[in-house]
Simulated assay, not measured.
Amino acid sequence: MQFQNPFAVITPSADGDVLQVVARAPQAWHTSAAVARIAGTRSQEGVRLVLNRLVEQGIVEREADTQGHRFRLNLDHLASDAVIAIARQWETFLSRLTLEVESWNRPPLYGAVFGSAARQDMKATSDIDLFLVRPEGLTDDSWFENVTVLEHKASRWTGNDVRTLWMDGSEVSERVRETVLRDILRDGVRITGDPLWLRRVVGGSR
């Protein structure tokens, strides 16, 4: 899957691009020009045709305004919850990751998604990169088992391979000048731990 294009899991057509726009802001009215601008990859005429077709299906509602017509998701439609759920797969993924790692006996000191998933520029076959900081003093295999289970679950949730970069807290301090940690600091999306932890450890190094 591609988190920046969530409807690609069910359709490669313009319908998915249009539904993504109206589902991400379900209370807002949009003109066809605004939907085309936000979607970014479709012509205004193509978007207008899709919106009118979705109006016929009832999932989008239309009303006249001074510029012609405006549109929004019909929240009373039987399919609206499903449409919103598809549009919000990224948020759901982050929430599931958080719940999973915070259920461990010794949760990570810090965790984040990084790479193309965090930057929202994935290809369908992109790996999903996770970064986890292991608490100091763990001597059994439970950490490795937890990471393996997490990777398996996250792959099942998305269809993508999931790869975890993990370090002990002290190791992060020793490797602060490495590009990967700078990239995680810049682009990473936190899933657990103190939001400022990584910035304190990595951001203060020159």
Rank of each mutant, 00 (worst) to 15 (best):
D161A: 05
V180P: 06
E63P: 09
R186Q: 12
R119N: 07
R175N: 09
S95K: 13
S80G: 15
R190F: 04
L109W: 11
D140F: 02
T179P: 11
N105F: 07
E91S: 13
R62D: 15
T66F: 11
P195S: 11
R163N: 01
G115K: 08
E102H: 10
D183M: 14
D141F: 15
V83W: 02
R72A: 06
E100M: 03
D65Y: 04
D65V: 04
G169T: 09
Q89E: 11
V149N: 12
Q120C: 04
E63Q: 13
E145M: 15
I59G: 02
I191M: 02
F131M: 06
L150Q: 00
R62N: 11
D76K: 13
G193R: 10
G137M: 04
T92A: 12
T98K: 14
G137I: 02
E174H: 14
A87I: 00
F144E: 10
R175K: 13
L138A: 08
R190W: 03
R72T: 08
R134D: 09
S126G: 01
R186G: 03
R186Y: 09
K123S: 08
S142R: 14
W143H: 06
A79K: 15
L99S: 13
A87F: 01
V162I: 05
F131A: 03
A79P: 01
E178K: 14
I59D: 03
A154H: 01
S155P: 05
I86K: 02
L99F: 09
L73G: 06
L181Q: 08
E100P: 02
S173T: 12
V147W: 01
T158Q: 01
G115W: 01
R96Y: 00
L94E: 06
T179R: 10
S103I: 10
T98H: 12
L94A: 02
T92P: 03
G137C: 05
D168W: 10
D194P: 05
R190A: 06
R62K: 13
V83L: 14
R175M: 12
A118S: 07
Q57H: 13
W166Y: 15
K153A: 03
N146P: 08
E63W: 14
V101F: 03
I84W: 01
G137S: 08
A117C: 01
R177Y: 09
M167Y: 11
I184T: 02
A64R: 15
E174I: 00
V55D: 05
S142M: 13
P108N: 14
A85C: 13
K123A: 07
R156L: 04
V60L: 15
W143S: 06
G68H: 09
M122L: 12
W143A: 03
T139L: 10
H152K: 14
L165A: 03
F131Q: 04
P195W: 09
T192K: 11
L130V: 13
T66I: 09
Q67Y: 07
V180N: 12
F93W: 02
W143Q: 05
D81C: 08
F131P: 01
L109V: 15
E56W: 05
L109G: 11
T164K: 01
K153D: 01
R182V: 11
D129R: 00
W104G: 01
S103Q: 10
G115H: 09
S116K: 15
R96I: 04
L132R: 02
N105H: 11
L130S: 10
V189C: 08
L75A: 15
V176L: 14
R72L: 06
A87Q: 03
T139R: 14
F114Y: 13
R134Y: 08
S142Y: 07
